[in-house]
Amino acid sequence: MARSRKEEVLLIQGLEVSYQTDRGPVRAVRGVDLSVREGEILGLVGESGCGKSATLLSVMGLLPFPGKVVAGSIRVCGADVLALSKKELRSLRGSTVAMVFQDPMSTLNPAHKIGAQMKEALTVHGLPCTQDILVRLLQEVGIPSPEAVLGYYPHQLSGGMQQRVMIAIALSCRPKLILADEPTTALDVTIEAQILDLLRQINRERGTAIVLVTHNLAVASQFCHRIAVMYAGQIVEEGTVDEVLANPLHPYTQGLIGCIPRFKKGVPLTPIPGQVADLSENLHGCAFYPRCPKREPACLKTPQDLLDTGDRLVRCHKYGYLDYAETAAARDWGNE
């Protein structure tokens, strides 16, 4: 895939995450490669349990207890996250890469005022934090009467305002990369639109790269430049938003799109049969095999590789070892 030569702010290679449980290891992420450049918005989409949040949390070094990165490398602006000491990791978080979580009510401390929580983020990184700076940060994310809000407790703000405060804190140290984990899922649709506008504006004005994790394909299609579709801990398709959504190649991506009501009367929904793959079991061959409408015996033989079709990456052996003309033919097949 031809891409502009801007600085790479995030480079993930061969990431594998495993949760040790009583029933054996659950392989939440099974070999993810990703790269995000300056000024780019990447959408990471998939259903619950597909490993999108585990991937993000590994970048921040925040995987919860039984979870562990068992293989691979993660570089943020050149720094090898997995080799950093706790202290170095702490200084990286916030200043270079910041995270916005799904539920602002549970990420803000309910017992501290907004001003104090914002101050903490700045002082930890040794930055000045006068009243003026805090007010300006709140203004930048569109909070009305910021002076008053500094003295509020989180519960005095609405969900949308809380999420704006979270974004203000994430922006306070001017990070190069923002990781947003379902930032609008807890919000109403009119508020969701406000928050996405704000993130887009930050991306455009400052060139901040954003990784947006979402289960909502429509949100991703409106907001992202590139998207990566995950299934069972792997990326199954990756490319520009327009390419992937207008012309999906992987049967799972096609299935996801068929599940979404499209504001057209009389177009039936075509659900994907079955359930999401169980990651505590050993998966042979293609993880999507049991649910795939186009499966054939060959799909189970070897692990599927992520193949470059020229304009995108697809993890489906039907696209393997084709020259370019054949890829075009395969694309027609994908549109059936």
């Binding site: 109403d188 009119t190 639109a193 909502n216 429509a218 299609s221 409106q222 207008a246 799109i257």
Partner: peptide, 17 residues
């Protein structure tokens, strides 16, 4: 409403909650 594949139309943005 974010719509799949539809380019951003003129949006009416509501202020506040």
């Amino acid at each position: 409403i974010p719509r799949l594949g539809k380019t951003k139309s003129a949006r009416i943005r509501l202020q506040g909650a």
